Amino acid sequence: MKRWIAAGAALLAAGCLLLTGCGKEEPKAASLADGHIHVVTHANWNPFEYLKDGQITGFDIDLIQEASKRAGLTPDISDAGWEAIFEQIRTGQADAAISGVTITDDRKATYLFSKPYFVSRQAILIREDETISSARDLMDGKTIAVQNGSTGQEALEKLMGKNNPAIRKTPMSVQMLIGGQVDALVGDETSVKAIQAQYPDQHLKIVYDDTAFTPEYFGILYPKDRGEELQKKLDKALSSMISDGTYAKLYQKWFHTEVDKTMLESLGK
């Protein structure tokens, strides 16, 4: 996720942290024995993690704070650039990172991941009178709006081709769907659900196709060589949060909709 982040800004942040700290000394990774852990994030993705009144907040932040509390730990959370969170974990400057990080085989070769705590799915949003029932139907003369630079754009271009004229890349994707200028909108499930809830009078319907749009699983990132103890503690806490309903409450708080039961079941395994 977050591949739309401007490369220049990310590299500047990474360089700042890796070289001199730009005048600010970052917290170092701590031993679990003292009860504190240093957690890094990239606070620029509302509602997962973002800055509000100078404080880092969001779904991921509530999640890591509650999981840490259940594990008997106190998280010291700091904001970092996207590339910098990986470097700080790799070099042992931080104990954990949470920032909508997708679990991939390539990353697992270098880092240790928690159990999945979130499933990110691409979804198709249509008007109720539209006959689209799968991603394949989008290729039958349909026009589709995507938020420019989003993961929805990436998923759709992978399916239909990067320069396909049927894909309308625009910041006005919602307005184009409501106005009938396009037949469908493709975006992240949480965003699509928020749009549907925001415009109840438009009678919008969500269509899923997990075969065409492979789900992504988010995980907490740890150092490969020394993160196993913390991983086990927080995995146990995450499992308890899912089973006792705390996770569902956090999901409702930040995404203003109920968590999908299928998603919840997959996280509870």
Rank of each mutant, 00 (worst) to 15 (best):
A6Q: 15
D95F: 06
I126Q: 01
R3P: 12
Q202L: 09
L112S: 07
A109M: 10
G15T: 10
A33M: 04
T57N: 09
R127T: 12
D183W: 02
P47V: 02
Q65V: 05
A29F: 05
Y111L: 05
Y199S: 04
C16G: 11
D79W: 02
T214R: 14
P165G: 04
G58L: 02
K169G: 02
L238N: 05
M1W: 08
T262L: 10
G92P: 04
E265Y: 06
S266W: 00
T131S: 15
P200G: 03
V174R: 10
S266D: 10
Y247W: 03
L250M: 08
S99I: 02
C22E: 02
G81H: 01
R90T: 10
P215W: 00
T57G: 01
Y50P: 10
I167V: 07
D79Q: 07
L32K: 08
K162Q: 13
A10S: 13
S78L: 10
K193L: 15
K169D: 00
Q231R: 07
H36S: 11
A10Q: 10
E87W: 13
M172E: 15
T110C: 11
I220L: 05
W254P: 04
V119R: 13
D201T: 12
G72L: 06
E157R: 14
M160L: 10
F113A: 04
I124E: 07
I132Q: 08
I178P: 00
I5F: 12
K108E: 14
P116F: 01
K233R: 09
A248W: 05
I126K: 02
F118K: 08
I103V: 10
W254H: 11
A135I: 01
S78E: 14
K249W: 06
L204P: 05
D188A: 15
S68D: 04
K253L: 00
Y247L: 08
L63Q: 09
V186E: 03
C22M: 05
Q196F: 08
A155S: 13
E128R: 12
L234Q: 07
D137W: 02
R127V: 08
R136D: 15
T211G: 11
H36V: 13
T190Y: 11
Q55L: 11
K269P: 07
G149V: 01
W45N: 15
L185M: 15
Q202W: 03
T211H: 12
D62Q: 01
A109F: 06
D95S: 09
G100T: 11
A212P: 04
P165M: 04
A184K: 08
V39L: 03
D137N: 06
S78Q: 12
H38L: 06
N148Q: 14
D210F: 00
Y199E: 09
A197W: 01
L267Y: 01
D201V: 05
L204Q: 07
M241R: 02
P27Q: 03
Q198M: 11
D95T: 03
D76L: 15
I206Q: 07
L267F: 06
E49C: 14
V186P: 06
Y251N: 03
A197K: 15
D62V: 00
P27S: 04
T74C: 02
H36M: 11
L11A: 13
Y111M: 05
E228L: 09
A13F: 01
R90S: 14
F59V: 01
L159H: 06
A10R: 07
